[in-house]
């Protein structure tokens, strides 16, 4: 696995600045690091969303790798078509094989919600591609509307905190688990704020032939109502609170990549939530019950995940 110096100096960057993402945006370094971690030729297919609109306002493009955008809900299907074209034309001798790697991405809206069917189909068909979901937990591009990835009780513009409703009433979908259900060789969950874990997973995934999926938690200063300089730290705290554990599932076997609890570093989820304006109503009188509810949910999911990982490690 590459060191940071290797990532930074081995090849020219394939994702450059001058894009129009907000200051302190959480997703650009996912793509910078992903492309830095892949040495082979790569094609990137992006779903409509923040990343796509900010990086490709004509005639400006931040991509130095071939980049294709089709629509919102179909980056996986579109990427599967690129991949099929590559293998078909290599097979028929129209194209020289060059080990091209295929990457599709979408935000949480384009992945958890509107693009889920397209993604599910592409994974089931077994295309040799890596899908990366950058998950900032709402439709940030259109103005912070709730998505299937929005955490419980977060304030969004379509599930706003009101006098009787404390924000989004439903729990966040467990996307990685849904992807594991597709029996693909590699599924992983990581954060934008851990370059090593992220690039290790990208390197591991790109070495595998077949469909791979990585969901990456990324902070959004606008939607999370956080300070721009805290973007990296915020996702690290999501891991430390065990709200967003770092783990991977290789051929159906769960493995924790970091255990803050074992290191005695597990923090209360409230420590993570209180940094974010979208949860500020939880820290007003009456919020204790809601916070306790979130903490209980996080603990249950964490314990379930640990049990699953322990079960699989004992099998080996």
């Amino acid at each position: 696995m590459a060191t940071l110096k290797e990532l930074a100096t081995t090849q020219a960057e394939k994702f450059v600045g001058g894009h129009t993402s907000c200051a302190g945006c959480g997703y650009p370094n996912i793509f910078r690091l992903t492309l830095a971690a892949i040495k082979d030729p790569v094609v990137v297919v992006g779903a409509t969303g923040c990343c796509e609109v900010n990086t490709s306002i004509f005639p400006y493009t931040s991509w130095k790798a071939p980049f294709l955008h089709n629509a919102f809900e179909n980056s996986a299907a579109t990427c599967s078509g690129v991949e099929a074209a590559y293998y078909s034309m290599v097979k028929s001798g129209k194209l020289a094989a060059n080990n091209t790697r295929f990457i599709a991405f979408g935000g949480d809206g384009g992945t958890y919600d509107i693009g889920l069917q397209s993604l599910s189909g592409a994974l089931e068909r077994g295309h040799d591609m890596l899908y990366i979901c950058y998950d900032n937990g709402a439709y940030m591009n259109t103005g912070i509307q709730r998505s299937g990835a929005t955490p419980r009780y977060a304030n969004t513009t379509t599930a706003p905190v009101g006098k009787v409703v404390p924000g989004k009433m439903q729990k966040k979908k467990d996307l990685a688990k849904i992807m594991v259900g597709h029996n693909v060789p590699y599924v992983a969950q990581t954060i934008a704020g851990n370059w090593k874990d992220l690039t290790n997973k990208v390197e591991k995934a790109t070495a595998i032939r077949g469909p791979k999926f990585i969901v990456v938690l990324a902070a959004c200063p606008l939607g999370w109502q956080t300070k721009t300089q805290d973007t990296v730290r915020l996702t690290q705290l999501a891991v430390e609170s065990c709200f967003w554990p770092l783990y991977e599932v290789e051929n159906g076997k769960y493995k924790l990549n970091d255990n803050p609890e074992a290191k005695g570093k597990k923090i209360p989820v409230a420590d993570w939530l209180k940094m974010q304006g979208r949860f500020k109503h939880l820290f007003k009188p009456g919020g204790e019950k809601l916070l306790a509810e979130i903490q209980a949910e996080v603990d249950k999911d964490w314990n379930d995940l640990k049990a699953l990982c322990e079960f699989h490690s004992k099998q080996e």
Binding site: L68, N70, A71, G81, A84, A85, M89, S118, G121
Partner: peptide, 18 residues
């Protein structure tokens, strides 16, 4: 594919790949 939407989406990907 799993839908016509994906059928044409995949065709767009393939055609954009030449």
């Amino acid at each position: 594919v799993e839908s016509e939407h994906s059928a044409l989406s995949a065709c767009v990907g393939s055609a954009a790949a030449g």
